[in-house]
């Protein structure tokens, strides 16, 4: 009997071992980005803007022209890239500390200007690479190394809901929140990323996808328990769904 390969690595993904921890969702999110780039024929046109955090090494895993942005500034760098090369496909890949804390100004204004770029925002409620500190999306009661007693709303404020905020900005053509904790959600996540890419290729505006993701190591959880936490704790606070889609409204932004 001849073996048939039914599931393979997308061409654009480098054949290397990722540095991500067991149970981390970055690998899944990377793969979804890779699959969309390939299916949409964007690999040779793509310029990736990598951010600071665990995902800085995106450029080692996706074989694309890439530039590394300072912490939080990926949307500004992407603006410069897109303005310089309007015919290229430009996307950023950012974590929650990067996008929702130090880079809040850059993401808000990039979205509001309606830059023709796409943003993949991975929200795992914690600073991963620096060792598990409180993030702007850390849930109330969640313990981190800088809120060891658990995040307190009165002291640290409420977790920021980026998808809802971004959807309210003028230049945004597509905005969704997805999760990659189940096959069903992964399928939906891929569709959302593809949509966020399409609004750029169609020149409609800014595309944004928030991906709820695990960080088993800094959550001090097993991969299985971390995966379960997405549905148990994160989705109730960060509801999934499409928050804006101008293609359904029959107009542009």
């Amino acid at each position: 009997m001849k073996d048939e390969l039914v599931f393979k690595r997308p061409e654009v993904m480098a054949d290397v071992t990722m540095h991500y921890c067991p149970g981390c969702h970055h690998g899944v999110a990377h793969r979804l980005v890779a699959e969309c780039l390939e299916s949409m024929g964007l690999v040779e046109k793509a310029i990736a803007v990598c951010s600071i955090g665990c995902s800085v090494f995106l450029y080692n895993y996706l074989k694309l022209d890439s530039v590394e942005a300072p912490h939080g500034r990926a949307p500004a760098v992407a603006t410069g890239v897109k303005r310089a090369r309007p015919d290229n496909f430009v996307f950023t890949y950012q974590g929650d500390g990067d996008l929702a804390s130090i880079g809040m100004a850059e993401i808000m204004h990039c979205a509001n200007r309606g830059e023709r770029v796409s943003v993949v925002f991975v929200n795992n409620t914690v600073y991963g690479m620096t060792g598990g500190q409180m993030a702007p999306t850390t849930l109330i009661g969640q313990k981190t190394t800088t809120c060891p007693g658990g995040r307190c709303r009165d002291r640290e404020g409420a977790p920021i809901k980026m998808a809802e905020i971004i959807a309210g900005l003028g230049g945004v053509a597509y905005c969704a929140r997805v999760a990659v904790d189940s096959v069903k959600n992964i399928v939906k996540a891929k569709k959302a990323i593809q949509k966020a890419f399409e609004v750029q290729t169609q020149g409609l505006g800014f595309g944004f996808v928030e991906v709820l993701a695990t960080c088993p190591t800094n959550w001090r959880m097993t991969p299985v328990a971390a995966n379960a936490r997405i549905a148990e704790e994160m989705i109730p606070y960060f509801p999934l769904g499409e928050y804006k889609d101008v293609t359904k409204e029959g107009g542009t932004c």
């Binding site: 500034r73 760098v77 603006t79 410069g80």
Partner: peptide
């Protein structure tokens, strides 16, 4: 901050 980072992006494109 953003302006300088936009410059970084455009410069990375050789413009």
């Amino acid at each position: 901050v953003a302006a300088a980072n936009m410059l970084l992006g455009a410069a990375a494109c050789g413009i």
